[in-house]
Design a binder for these strands. Structure first.
Lengths: 345, 345
DNA sequence: TTGTACGCGTTATCAT
DNA sequence: ATGATAACGCGTACAA
């Protein structure tokens, strides 16, 4: 014998398979006694229904999938908690699926949609750039959440919840300018990398321009090394170290993410310099460590909880009211902490 | 029409379904021309095979699943990378599945085993406590990796890779004792919580005993609040704050995890105290931030890469050579950094 | 090389 | 309330 199936249980109980099915799925039309008998034998024989067969037969499920690319980012966790709760509250079930870096998230979605008869999809994170044509293939409601949406995508064609990365990084750099910093370095991703770093760099450039500051290529910093995760502390450390050892002048660093900022801080401390007395440091994301780091780090905090709530709200609107697509751009907070100070004070 | 199936493709191409199937699955017995015609039409019509049907029909797959409980822990990521690579290298496919806190990981495994015809399973993290009887139900090879294995489980009955949490936390506390600290507080999980914290607390107690130091209940610190994640920075912060505001004397804190240690540091700084001059702080896990924090934090570093490699090695041994169960306990490193110092120096 | 027909394990429809 | 049976979409023996 291979694995126990519904037929085995039926045979053992001396009933038909449909009766067993009824027992499993809490159907009304079934005698309480036979039901409990069946349930008992199921336990005894360790019978586990085969999900593939169920999904195949079922014409629909109540599953919402959350596809997440680059699970590394710490703040996804708080969003996931919200998703989980809200989805459960609505009596749907929740499926978290991690998308590998090299995979195409839309392809994965398409597969899952068929395999699990999804009711809805949330795309979390990642730098979303897909042709409209491809997105059209997705037949169930979906929402793009967090993470820059490439300009390639027509925002009119799908639902999304995001912050404007260009504007928010502009906000930070502008703040540094207003503090009197004129030589602001940025630690960003290499140009070859399709990522949110592009957008944040753009905000940096725009802020310098608006503040009539020259943009020096020398102060745009990155390392092009595929073995280095560009959103890690180590990356920030390495890049900042190179910067400090060069003869490029600067009084502040804007790091593309909080983790990178932390790494940069370490490099600065190693050179015997102080923060913010010698250099001001700013991050982006608003993860826990910025509050707990010593000194605490100035950052851009995305309203992750609210964004997650809005994401799921929109998704359910789409599902239940089959309403129109809906997009929302959130404003982030500039959280001023100890790592930045007015120049010359 | 609902969704396109293999039949539709067959009809469109004017061939039989089996030919289409052969094209999809790279079977040898097929004419190159018909194959490319089929592949072309598949693309054009955006046909996506239904995985549920495939899994149902397939008697076996080449999938290795990694079940992970409490995805929060940062160092799981490095292990996952290893798993992913090694599994790919062996031409297996990799399935990551997150297990919710309230779910039973073995039940999930049992389901997945049937649904996906798994070849093997890795249980990652979590405080593993299941009856042998339950584990016996899993028919495919599996390895328990990282995370304390409850004493309930007979280690002789399954394969595992782990560090001895009792011994390693003993190592750390013993080190603190040898530095001259006689009043060492511990920030741990509440007794109600079934977790790895129990084991680390045990090591703490044993170390005090062996160093002829009295064990003061007052110095065993925790907060019993289900809304607080006990492995978070915030938890460390809150507990340390309570400790500092009590009149309990101590010169060192051993935190149950690095994140907790970071939180504790913050609380200490807020009170205007210094590390390590006023208090020594020690963590556990060896995550990135301990190196980048200011001051850098003394910790126990688990050899995660090696452990991951060993895990996958054992699993493949089990699968391919159907060899016997195998267990390995790794020794962790005591990484001495700036956050701890000899008392009175 | 290609097509037909059956079965994978389950749910749903229809009798009974 | 219960049981037989037809799908669900795919892979694969087997026949051609």
């Amino acid at each position: 014998m291979g694995t126990t199936t519904i037929k085995d249980i039926a045979r053992i109980c001396g009933v038909g398979v449909s009766t067993v099915s009824r027992a499993i799925n809490d159907h009304p039309d079934i005698n309480e006694e036979t039901k409990s008998l069946i349930l008992k034998t199921i336990k005894e024989h360790n019978y586990v229904p085969n999900n593939s067969a169920r999904n195949l037969k079922r014409s629909e499920s109540n599953t919402i999938a959350v596809l997440i690319k680059g699970i590394t980012n710490a703040f996804y966790n708080s969003m996931l908690k919200v998703f989980e709760n809200e989805i459960q509250k609505k009596k749907y079930s929740f499926l978290l699926h991690r998308v590998e870096e090299h995979e195409d998230e839309v392809d994965v979605a398409l597969q899952l949609e068929k395999e699990k008869r999804l009711k809805g999809i949330v795309f979390l994170g990642g730098y979303f750039s897909h042709s409209e044509e491809k997105l059209k293939q997705i037949k169930v409601p979906f929402v793009l959440s967090t993470g820059g949406i490439s300009e390639i995508i027509d925002k009119k064609s799908c639902s999304y919840v995001m912050v404007d990365d260009v504007q928010e990084s502009y906000r930070m750099v502008d703040y540094l300018c207003k503090l009197g910093h004129k030589k602001i370095a940025i630690i960003t991703t290499p140009p070859s990398e399709e990522s949110i770093g592009k957008l944040r760099l753009e905000g940096y450039k725009k802020a310098l321009r608006d503040n009539q500051l020259p943009m020096e290529e020398q102060r745009i910093r990155y390392i092009d090394n595929e073995h280095l995760d560009t959103f890690s502390m180590q990356y920030g450390y390495e890049v900042a170290k190179e910067l400090l050892e060069s003869d490029v002048k600067f009084t502040a660093i804007f790091a593309i993410s909080d983790s990178v900022a932390v790494g940069a801080c370490k490099a600065i401390f190693e050179k015997g310099k102080r923060i913010p007395e010698d250099y001001s440091i700013a991050g982006y994301d608003g993860i826990d460590i910025t509050y707990y780091y010593q000194p605490s780090i100035t950052t851009i905090r995305q309203p992750v909880i609210e964004m997650a709530e809005e994401t799921i709200r929109i998704l359910f609107d789409l599902i239940e009211d089959s309403s129109q697509r809906e997009g929302k751009i959130f404003t982030a907070d500039l959280v001023v902490r100890e790592s930045t100070k007015k120049l010359g004070e």
